[in-house]
Nucleic acid binder design. Structure first.
Length: 193
DNA sequence: CAATAGATCATCT
DNA sequence: GATGATCTATTGC
């Protein structure tokens, strides 16, 4: 119905990243409004997994757009990305933070240590826990099924903040992080203003 | 407050 | 064998 079509993802990665702000990530009966993302490019972007070329791990980034790329990091956490660009061209958008909009009680039960709603999904490792997204979703088609991205019923107005990406060691000055300015649900960072 | 250590493993050298 | 698109608890001012 309101699920984003594949053409939405088949565009330059930074454009898709910015346009994902305000969209709704749905998994089963939990859902959240996307408030923070980062773009990861192809061979020239040394911060991107795809800069190493096509490997078993990165093959999804080289595949058709509109699919999930979920990877395991720091021996503990999983990060959820959306694949962009046309088939054969690597690119992905890391979803870094969500504003919970549905299934909030379920999110709290998956994250027992959290007591404030704004701490539920304010980071890439946090939102995968709260939404129950794991490596089993790697390669999953996001244009249909129980894991998908939707256009919100009501359009909202917000300012888009831009900053360098967080937690990387290469290309640290590229302005590829986008977030909803002033949102309390964005991950904690000094770059938010 | 800010800085740091520890948890813990898939991936690549 | 080292590293990493992280998070939390703890220590130190």
């Amino acid at each position: 119905m309101n699920t984003l079509p594949r053409t939405f993802y088949s565009r330059p990665t930074a454009e898709v990243a910015r346009d994902l702000l305000g969209k709704i990530l749905v998994h089963g009966d939990t859902a959240g409004r996307i408030v923070e993302v980062e773009a990861y490019l192809g061979l020239v972007d040394l911060a991107s997994h795809a800069s190493k070329g096509r490997t078993p791990r990165t093959q999804v980034m080289f595949g058709p757009p509109g699919h999930a790329y979920v990877y395991f990091i720091y021996g503990m956490y999983e990060c959820f990305n959306v694949v962009t660009e046309s088939d054969g061209t690597p690119g992905a958008v890391l979803v870094r933070a969500l504003e919970p909009v549905a299934g909030i009680e379920r999110m709290f039960s998956r994250r027992p240590a959290v007591h404030r709603e704004q701490d539920l999904c304010s980071g890439p490792g946090k939102l995968t826990l709260a939404m129950d997204i794991t490596r089993r979703h790697n390669g999953r088609d996001l244009t249909h099924g129980d894991l998908r991205v939707e256009k919100p019923a009501k359009r909202s107005m917000f300012l888009v903040g831009v900053s360098p990406r967080i937690g990387i060691r290469h290309c640290t000055d590229w302005p590829l992080r986008f977030f909803v300015q002033g949102s309390a649900f964005v991950s904690k960072s000094p770059l938010n203003r």
